[in-house]
Amino acid sequence: MNNEVKAIKPKRKKTILIFGISSFLGSNLAEFFKDEYKVVGTYNKNPVRIPGILTIPCDVLQKDEVQLVLFAFRPDITIYAVGMSSVVDCALEPERADALNTSGLFNVVDYCARYKSQICFISSANVFAGEKKNYLEMDIPDPNTIYGKTQASAEFYIQKTSLNYILFRSSKLYGRSNNPKRFTWFDLIQMKLSQKEQIELDDYVSTGYLDVYYLAMILKICFDREVKNRLFQVSSTDQMTLYNFTKKYAEIFNDQSTLITKGKWSYPILTSAATHVAEKFYFDLDVSNLEGFLNIKLPSIEESLNYTFKRLHGVKKESKKDKNTGGVNFI
């Protein structure tokens, strides 16, 4: 009988390549995944350093640069986190929005197919017009903004050309920036409330709100199960305006809610939009498909904020990166 114990080979860490690691989404996903995956990230004009992660320059609009990165690292999964996510900014710079949100993605998708990497793309509820209804994955996108139009084009291209993809159509994501010089809207709300400043917030656009780490956890489940060629909608189970979201935030984070007032922010609708010309907009994503497929329960906005409070609570007010908080703390 051979009693010799055979050496067990350690399980190979999968490689995740994140295009746009300097972005809010890219940097937070990198922080979340870096312990269990080998993470590599690219940036263009905003160099970023994340401990334990290799970051390199790459312009997604240059095909040769995209090809070189994918050839060099041969990632198992490629996440596209480049782009413009502001409805207003996209309306002001439509050509730049189209280049970053669609053209750059097309380059990445093409070379992902060549080097057998799964493409993961985070789309938006803005592919819809914001009518007062419950939107399903099977509903045909009918965007009424430049931003929504670019996201719908990206979804369509991936589904028609890629043989290995996973798409997540998401409600509004919130969290902290990993770059102390570039604040997210969530950072700015925290800052203003902590400094006792009056803040006027939109009360006309209703959407779901989800901590970015919830999205990261869902991505991890799908990556671990090797789910492919699926489109899932990800959102809190309820919707609020930014005004009501911030009021709920103030309640949970013990901030002064009287500083928060109602306002109406610009929502630049395309002149060619065929539907919905009302003043108020509703982005209610049905999430039953994702919940049933993964056997999970997505949180309400209040539950998401309670999770955020626990994730961030007790950290000093320092402009330092931290793997648990992902950025500047104003608590």
Rank of each mutant, 00 (worst) to 15 (best):
M1D: 15
M1K: 11
N3M: 05
K6G: 09
A7H: 09
A7S: 06
I8C: 08
I8Y: 12
P10V: 04
K11Q: 15
K14T: 07
K14F: 08
L17M: 15
D35G: 03
G41P: 01
K45E: 13
P51N: 14
G52P: 06
G52A: 06
T55L: 00
V60A: 08
L61A: 07
E65N: 04
V66G: 02
V69K: 05
F71S: 12
F73D: 08
I79N: 08
G83P: 04
M84H: 06
S86I: 04
V88N: 09
E95L: 11
D98K: 11
A99P: 01
T102C: 04
V108G: 04
V109E: 03
Y111M: 14
A113I: 09
Y115Q: 09
C120E: 09
C120N: 11
N126Y: 12
N126A: 04
V127E: 01
V127M: 07
F128G: 07
A129G: 12
K132L: 11
D139I: 07
D142S: 06
D142R: 01
D142Q: 02
N144I: 15
N144G: 12
T145R: 02
Y147I: 09
K149P: 03
Q151F: 00
Y157T: 09
I158G: 09
K160S: 10
T161Q: 06
N164F: 03
L167N: 11
S170V: 13
K172N: 14
L173G: 05
G175Q: 08
R176K: 11
N178S: 15
N179C: 02
F183T: 13
W185N: 13
E197R: 08
L201R: 04
D202F: 05
D203M: 00
D211A: 03
Y213L: 10
A216S: 14
L219M: 15
K220D: 15
F223N: 08
D224F: 00
K228Q: 15
Q233T: 03
V234F: 10
Q239R: 08
K248F: 01
K248V: 05
Y249V: 08
I252N: 10
F253T: 01
Q256F: 10
I260Q: 14
T261V: 13
S266V: 12
Y267I: 03
Y267K: 02
P268Y: 13
I269K: 12
S272I: 12
S272L: 09
A273N: 13
H276V: 08
K280P: 05
F281W: 08
F283R: 10
L285C: 10
L290D: 14
G292I: 00
F293W: 14
F293G: 06
N295Q: 13
N295E: 15
K297Y: 11
K297R: 14
L298A: 05
L298D: 04
E303F: 00
L305P: 12
Y307C: 07
R311D: 10
V315I: 07
K317T: 14
G327C: 00
F330K: 03
I331M: 08
